[in-house]
Simulated assay, not measured.
Amino acid sequence: MAKKITDKDGKTYVQVKPWYKRWWIWVIVVLIVLFLIGSLSGSDDSKSGSGSGSNTQTTSPSKITVDYDDYNVKSSKTYKLDYSNDDWDKADVKVNKVTVYKLAKPYEFDSASDGKYDINGFIKLDMTIKANGDISIYPQQGTAVIGSEQEDAIGESWDGDINDGVEKSGEVYIPIKDLNNPSSISDIRFKFSANDQDMDSDHDYDLTLNLNND
């Protein structure tokens, strides 16, 4: 109950109790402290959980689309190559980078030449081709050798006829049957053909792409 005080002039005042002497203030303070302790503890738990997998090679699940089909990806690794080839004077061919995808599970793949079989990954070649004449060039119809495995390349059409002075960039995908992880591939042999649109000359490309596994 508030205490009343009368001064020498007869005026009456109500003495207000200081805030720190009010019991309900301290109840609120205790509740706030307990809430903050609980929040900090939960934050530490979440950090230790996410850090437990920091040394593994897996990444957050993602998805790639190859030839209009979707594939869930477990992990991937990208190699910057800046590889160039000017063996044929009609074209400058570059492989800018190579990405190796380890799929989240085996997927059934329908190959145009070998029928259906299970795959565990893809290799993606990012390529640029500059024509020094009117040419027809077909990296998406090429073949790749990875170890003892030979596979046909696929992808959405961007190659074919390229006229003199035109530069085109696109992706070539190579399915992989056996793949332990994205770092397990050291080199790729990639072969495809090209010809002059007038059929005066042709060329067979045979590229060896060395990947850095450091």
Rank of each mutant, 00 (worst) to 15 (best):
A2I: 02
K3C: 01
T6P: 12
T6Q: 15
K8E: 15
T12Y: 07
Y13I: 11
V14L: 11
K17A: 09
W24P: 05
I32L: 06
I32T: 09
V33S: 03
I37M: 13
S43W: 07
D44Q: 10
K47Q: 01
K47N: 00
S48G: 09
G49I: 01
S50V: 08
G53W: 02
G53N: 14
S54N: 03
T56A: 15
Q57Y: 06
T59D: 14
P61C: 04
V66R: 07
D67H: 01
D69A: 09
Y71I: 12
K74Q: 15
S75N: 15
S76E: 09
N85A: 08
D86W: 03
W88H: 08
A91K: 03
K94S: 12
V95T: 04
K97G: 02
V98C: 01
T99Q: 10
T99A: 06
K105S: 12
Y107M: 08
Y107E: 11
S111T: 01
G115F: 06
K116R: 07
Y117F: 14
Y117M: 06
D118G: 05
D118Y: 12
I129Y: 05
I129D: 08
I129C: 13
D134I: 00
D134H: 05
I135G: 12
S136I: 06
Q140M: 11
Q141K: 07
G142L: 05
G142R: 03
A144W: 04
A144K: 04
A144Q: 09
V145C: 06
G147K: 03
Q150A: 04
E151N: 13
D152Y: 02
I154Q: 10
G155K: 03
E156R: 05
W158F: 00
G160C: 01
G160A: 07
G160V: 01
G160T: 09
D161P: 11
G165C: 00
E167W: 02
E167C: 09
G170Y: 04
E171G: 03
N180M: 11
N180W: 11
S183F: 08
S184P: 10
S184D: 14
I185N: 13
D187G: 14
S193G: 14
D198Y: 08
D200H: 09
D200T: 06
H203Q: 08
H203W: 13
H203Y: 15
Y205P: 10
N210P: 00
N210W: 01
N210H: 04
N210F: 06
L211R: 10
D214A: 02
